[in-house]
Every structure is written in C-alpha cells, then in structure tokens.
C-alpha cells in the first residue's frame, strides 16, 4: 500500500511537488503520468527516501516515513523494488552479480541467490547474458537487468521510473506483461511513464501529474 497525504517537496523554494494526496491500494497496479518535469521521478524518490519530503506524510506498507528512524531506512528500501530511470547498475559487476546484490544486501545465502537470480534473469530473457558486464549491453538489455534486480527480492512494492524508456514497442509490451504477472502475486506496483501507449486499454488507474500538482486520474 502506498499513501501520500498533503506531501510537498521544494527545491530552492520552488515547489516541485505541491500538496500531493493519493493512495495505491495493496496489490494494485497503477500508472503515474505527466510531461517531463512534472515531478514523477521526484515523487518516486520520496518513496524510497532518495529525497525527503518537506511537508506531509507518506506511508509505504508498514513504514510511516515521517517517523522513520535512520536504522529503519535500509529495511524500507529492501521492501521496495525500484526500476531506476538511469539504471544504477554497478559497471564492474557482472549481470548476475548486479541482480544478486539486492539479495546479498538482504543476507540471502549464495545457493539460494543462484536459483533466484537465475529465475529473475529468465523472466526478463537475459539468462544467456548473466556473465556479461553492463557496459557491453544495449540500453534495452541494461533496463531489463534493472527490472530483474528490482523483482528478484519479491518486494512488497515495485516502483518503476520510465521502465520502457529504452525499449522497442514489442519489448515494452512484454515488460508491462511481466509487471502484470508480478502484480498477480500481490505486489503493489506504481509505474511512472510519459508513454501513454503503455497504459492504454489496461484498465488500470492512471494518476496525472503536471507542474508538481496531481491534476486528476483516469482509467487506462
């Protein structure tokens, strides 16, 4: 479950998010859309505390971010899978180790890591590239590694920031199908995208953001 209550964020006194209130129910898959600079990425960053809200309260599952103590931050981040827009892959680690990193941080045993990473890479059709390094991969392949890393821990909440930005239309549809499969297992998903094709005819709720304001919602 994701809940924003009157959340605002300012950069140098300029409001990039203004009094945002919305919620995404447990097990729901929703989209967040808007033009570039609308505040989509900032809104996602507030959820895994890469940025801190200046006003309001955010609740992610059992975590009340306003009252979160520093030692609890890693626990929050481990409960969330994030597909970063700029990938955030570690270039000196192989694809396997990049995906495995999320599990190692959780303290999962190496034997289990081997199985879980293998399954995650299979889901994004990258098993054959597990020994490759990120720099040798195309943009689309790197994006799929990031998706594998985000889902390998079976997080309670999955956040995706422009997850199909570097993918061709067919692969994009495959990725959305993959998200839907994950959602079927009960994971709450919020996908930020400016590509309206992604949520057209999905029947999913779409939150519309513009100029830092939540301007409405529709069904895709």
């Amino acid at each position: 479950m994701i809940a924003f209550q009157n959340v605002s964020k300012y950069y140098e006194h300029q409001g990039v998010l203004k009094n945002i209130t919305f919620s995404v129910q447990k097990g729901e898959m929703a989209f967040l859309t808007g033009p570039s600079g609308a505040g989509k990425s900032t809104l996602l960053k507030l959820m895994y505390l890469a940025e801190w809200p200046d006003e309001g309260d955010i609740v992610i599952e059992d975590f009340h971010l306003q009252s979160l103590k520093p030692p609890e931050i890693p626990l929050l981040r481990r409960s969330i899978g994030v597909v970063f827009q700029d990938f955030k892959l570690i270039n000196n680690l192989t694809v396997f180790d990049n995906v495995a990193m999320a599990l190692r941080i959780k303290g999962v045993g190496e034997k289990e890591i081997k199985n879980l990473v293998s399954v995650a890479l299979k889901k994004v059709h990258l098993r054959h590239l597990s020994d490759s390094y990120p720099r040798s991969l195309s943009g689309g392949e790197q994006q799929r590694v990031v998706i594998a890393r985000a889902i390998v821990t079976e997080p309670l909440v999955l956040l995706a920031d422009e997850p199909t930005g570097n993918l061709d239309p067919n692969t994009s549809i495959d990725i959305i199908k993959l998200f839907e499969e994950i959602n079927l297992q009960g994971t709450t998903i919020l996908i930020a995208t400016h590509n309206r094709e992604l949520f057209r005819n999905t029947g999913r709720r779409v939150l519309k953001l513009d100029g830092g304001n939540l301007v409405g919602e529709e069904v895709g």
Partner: peptide
C-alpha cells in the same frame, strides 16, 4: 562512491 550510492538505495546497512 557511485557503487556505494547504488547499494545504499538497494537497502544496504552501514555495516554492509
């Protein structure tokens, strides 16, 4: 530093 920033966002503790 970049690698550390990434693993922080993935939920790494200070000890890790």
């Amino acid at each position: 530093k970049e690698e550390i920033e990434i693993i922080k966002l993935l939920g790494a503790t200070k000890g890790f």
